[in-house]
Design a protein around this nucleic acid. Structure first.
Lengths: 243, 243
DNA sequence: CTTGACTTAGGACACATGTTCGTGTTATTA
DNA sequence: TAATAACACGAACATGTGTCCTAAGTCAAG
């Protein structure tokens, strides 16, 4: 006979990662052609061929003739290394709940006096310990969940944004904004990070505090302002000792 | 004009239940025709019509021209339904999701100038229509979830509590408080509801605003103050049009 | 080299599926 | 009653999408 059949080829792995991420993000499975694009394969038959193998090995399951019916049985993320079975169970449980529950990584603290810690360039592995869980129904309908991250606010320096010490803010990274959006910006002049409503006017940018009793800041030089991301949600938790 | 548009019709509800169950069971969304079959509607356009309404009301979201791309934003389950064999396989996964998700009824709006709408005396049935879903992990460990309810803040009158117009506050009813707790109180003197930190001092009660730049209120006559509940959480959502 | 299992490509095909249009019906309100 | 918005049906349409057929390239073993 011929070539031995090993475990998973690189392409199999890439397909599994693509499926896992896609379903995590969109809540439904990609089409065969979308999978093909993701691994630079132009022929649908080849993708179908791979999918049959993955189904054979019970990495996925799907229904014949039904669009986007792929289910991921063994989720794979780009961390892609050997994870403990214990963790894998957790991942699977979270995955099954992914339609309704979203895990947002907690990246650190945000202080007015320093820039926002942005997503590290290295792979961000799944870490349920430092995450915030949010019901999907609380997020905007088409929010791309995978990009979101959470920061804990430190200090009282953002009271003009109606944000307290200890509040949790959820941010989607972006370097631009549309008028009226609440953004996290770094101001060169003041050397600080703030949360403000963003308004681009004729020749300047107006940053409006959430607190309606406070006055806006005007930035004439757009270079002096860096938009770090859009604020999606602010969560404040009060813990009482006695229940 | 014509027929008034109420909340959800019976068909809307049946569609939501069908979607919830289908996705729970199969892991992907049904097609328009499958939905039609489930509610005895033969025309696909009518189903599309309902789906648009549900999307409008943010019960679901979907992508244009993409098969089976419906996401359920507010899951609905019909009370006590027979579980099919197929479902049994996913029961565990669903359970874990249900355990982690908590549905808190939205009781109405809170305005500074009027008392808090308290839990009605009538039966408090499960109503996913007007509920806020929270991951249990966001709540204190032993929080008694069933008592909680949510209110939407109306107006800017609570800025001293660092609470904005449109914010969602989650409250556990109570008529007493421990020092340091954030409570919702009704002040006879001022004829208004506010959120304040509660401190009982020797001969008076001090109500401390969350905003550290603002001064406390002192109440000498404890009769003039009614504690309505303890604030468990404040949620502020920013919706951006463009993602 | 030859063979045969595996891999890759391209594309035709059938049909699943979302969209849209025309038309008719019902219920509410002026 | 008439007007109008909401509800309903069916069919035509365009295209999204899974399936399958043919053909060719790759590689290890005989």
């Amino acid at each position: 006979m011929a070539r031995k059949r090993e475990g998973l080829s690189d392409r199999h792995r890439r397909i599994m990662e693509y499926l896992t991420e896609f379903i995590d993000e969109f809540g439904y499975s990609p089409s065969i052609r979308e999978i093909g694009d993701s691994i630079d394969v132009k022929s649908t038959s080849l993708v179908d061929y791979y999918l049959n193998q993955l189904e054979e090995k019970e990495y996925i399951s799907r229904e014949g003739r039904i669009s986007r019916s792929i289910r991921v049985l063994k989720p794979m993320r780009s961390a892609g290394k050997a994870i403990s079975t214990k963790v894998r169970d957790t991942v699977r449980a979270v995955n099954s709940a992914v339609d309704n529950l979203v895990n947002i990584p907690l990246r650190g603290r945000i202080v007015a006096s320093s820039p926002i810690p942005m997503p590290a360039s290295d792979f961000n592995y799944y870490d349920s310990e430092s995450g915030v869980e949010i019901a999907r129904s609380l997020l905007p309908a088409r929010e791309r969940v995978s990009e979101l991250f959470a920061l804990e606010v430190q200090g009282d320096s953002m009271i003009d944004a109606m944000v307290n010490d200890g509040d949790l803010i959820i941010i989607r990274p972006s370097n631009q904004a549309v008028n009226g959006e609440m953004v996290a910006v770094w101001l060169d002049d003041k050397d600080e990070t703030t949360l403000k409503y963003f308004y681009k006017e004729k020749s300047r940018i107006r940053l409006q505090p959430a607190n309606p009793t406070m006055d806006p800041i005007y930035i004439d030089n757009p270079e002096a302002l860096r938009i770090m991301g859009k604020v999606v949600m602010v969560i404040r938790q009060y813990k009482s000792e006695i229940l």
